[in-house]
Amino acid sequence: MKLSICHLYPDVLNLYGDTGNILCLKKRLEWRGIGCEVTPLPIGAKADLARFDLFFIGGGQDFEQEVLLADLHGGKDRALRSAVEDEKVFLCICGGYQMMGQYYRTHTGEQLDFIGALDFHTVGSDLRMIGNYMFTCSEKNGASTVVGFENHSGKTFLGDGVSPLGKVVSGYGNNGEDGTEGARYKNVFGAYCHGPMLPKNPAFADLILQTALSRRYPGAALPQRDDSLERRAHDYMANRLARTN
């Protein structure tokens, strides 16, 4: 068995250690004897997206956003939308998450059109939503508790076509208002979770891998791993946030 992972825009969407997610996916496959090929797809590079099982998109700096949007609107947006509809698995963090939605409206009213693969939009605010945070995934997203660090000023509001990834236990989540965090549509998982997200949330990491594996190899299952070191890091933050809540 082998999974093909596409790391989209590693040259610009590489803030806050999010690439640790790629490392985590790769290692958790390798440790289980499952093959894994990671293909970086920087700005300007072309590839047939249909050959990938799993896509990762991280967060970036505002400075490079224009460069990125030009590349997206040069055709990648269409390819990504059809990959989404084709039930490919996506993990999208922060800026990469926002990018999957309809648009971003800055707090001065300027609108940046994103790829519109998912039914949500983001609105800029003066509030920086920053800090360690925790949310509980909904039942269909594995029901695990996820801890991480959020750092965004955009407020994301979900439309009818998507469901939240989970419910905020501590922190802000999508917008600091409705108690939701992240989005799930088909096999797309979006969240504001830096940290990076996957290494110290092994249950969620395995949910991503299992979803990709099941799509490619129906019936295949991931063997259990000893995650005591990962859980130790996870539990420390979960307990700390539970105490301060």
Binding site: G20, P199, K200
Partner: peptide
């Protein structure tokens, strides 16, 4: 304070868990 996170980082960097003391 965040020794747990550091240990996970080193594990994923390829260090054998038995080499890490937290």
């Amino acid at each position: 304070i965040r020794a747990g996170d550091m240990a996970v980082r080193l594990k994923y960097a390829g260090f054998d868990e038995t080499k890490l003391r937290v």
